[in-house]
């Protein structure tokens, strides 16, 4: 097991290098820093001095890969590639355009992001698995049919409408909770209820349908018939046999997103003005703060790889046949 984990972590390194190179190419090779400066300052006001100042502020005025002027190790360390790309492996992300330290900002914003993403994750997992089991229990009846119709209809609504509609209905019309905002501590619950509810609703259509398919596939297998034949009740079959055996495909989709919860949800956080990583990313995209976007790309891929490893570990926990070697 340990050997397997070490191998997986080692295997993650080339992937992270790939991500890193890709972002570097995207941000510094496709467009030269001069282009970015011109875009950022505005094409009309971009004088050569302004461009130089913009580049110097961000440390983009160094050579790309090899600094011919420097001596010794600085030949390679005093370059854009080393400064902006390789330092990320040490989780040093530099400063955003507003001068704040990106690493500190990310640490501060993880809390609010988790506060909204974790309840959403748990609730929607619970709700969609229960609803899917309900539909499977009543399979081939009108309840099942209309349930699937509802799921397809709910899937066809853009998440934007869930958010806009929910905010309008619950916060404006009924005035039950504040429209947006955030407060630290327990006070946050007031602000978090609506976004969590909306996120759960927005995702429930597709996930119920997905789990229903998994359960139906499982229920047509021989062992289920055997279980019924030995006289188990349908409920016992569903919970003790089908649900347990369906865990592998469910885990494949679920565990990988757990580390990503840190990243928050872009839309919900920005609509509800929650100071998490999602709204941080959106603000950075709108302000074209390339350093922040780069940092988020890197963190996102690290979390994704952690998720993959966790998925493998979770298999061993639910299925004794799976051994990691």
């Amino acid at each position: 097991m340990l050997a397997y984990l070490v191998r997986r972590v080692l295997y993650a390194i080339p992937i992270l290098i790939g991500v890193n190179l890709l972002t570097f190419v995207l941000f510094f090779v496709v467009n030269s820093p001069d282009d970015m400066a011109r875009m950022h300052i505005g094409v009309k006001r971009a004088t050569p001095e302004a461009i130089e100042r913009w580049k110097a502020d961000r440390g983009y005025d160094k050579p790309m890969f090899v600094n011919a002027d420097a001596q010794g190790r600085a030949r390679f360390t005093d370059t854009i590639f080393f400064d902006k790309s390789l330092r990320m492996f040490a989780l040093e992300f530099g400063r955003a355009d507003d001068g704040r330290d990106i690493g500190q900002e990310i640490r501060d914003r993880m809390g609010p992001s988790l506060a909204i993403a974790l309840p959403t994750f748990v609730l929607s997992l619970f709700a969609s698995i229960s609803l899917a089991l309900l539909l499977v229990f009543f399979r081939a009846t009108y309840l099942d049919f209309w349930g699937v119709v509802m799921c397809v209809a709910m899937m066809s609504i853009s998440s934007l409408f869930y958010i806009i509609g929910g905010q309008w209905l619950v916060s404006k019309l009924w005035a039950l909770v504040p429209i947006s905002g955030y407060a630290p501590g327990l006070d946050a619950a007031r602000f978090l209820m609506l976004p969590v509810l909306i996120s759960v609703l927005a995702g429930i259509g597709s996930s119920v349908r997905w789990y229903r398919t998994i359960f139906l596939e499982e229920i047509s297998k021989d062992y289920v018939r055997t279980a019924r034949a030995k006289g188990l009740s349908e409920l016992a079959v569903l919970f003790r046999h089908v649900l347990r055996n369906a865990l592998i495909p469910i885990l494949t989709g679920v565990v990988v997103v757990i580390p990503m919860l840190f990243m928050g949800s872009l839309l919900v956080e920005s609509f509800f003005a929650i100071p998490g990583l999602g709204s941080y990313t959106i603000d950075a995209i709108n302000a074209q703060d390339f350093a922040v976007v780069r940092a988020m790309v890197f963190i996102g891929s690290v979390l994704y790889i952690i998720g993959l490893i966790l998925t493998d570990i979770s298999y061993t926990l639910v299925d004794p046949r799976v051994r990691l070697e």
Binding site: I15, L16, G18, V19, L22, T23, L26, F27, M260, M263, L266, T281, I285, V293, R294, M296, V297, G300, S301, Y304, I305
Partner: peptide
């Protein structure tokens, strides 16, 4: 590698 980058962020970049 492409999968490892969250979709929205890759698109944004």
């Amino acid at each position: 590698v492409l999968n490892a980058i969250p979709g929205v962020l890759l698109i944004a970049a």
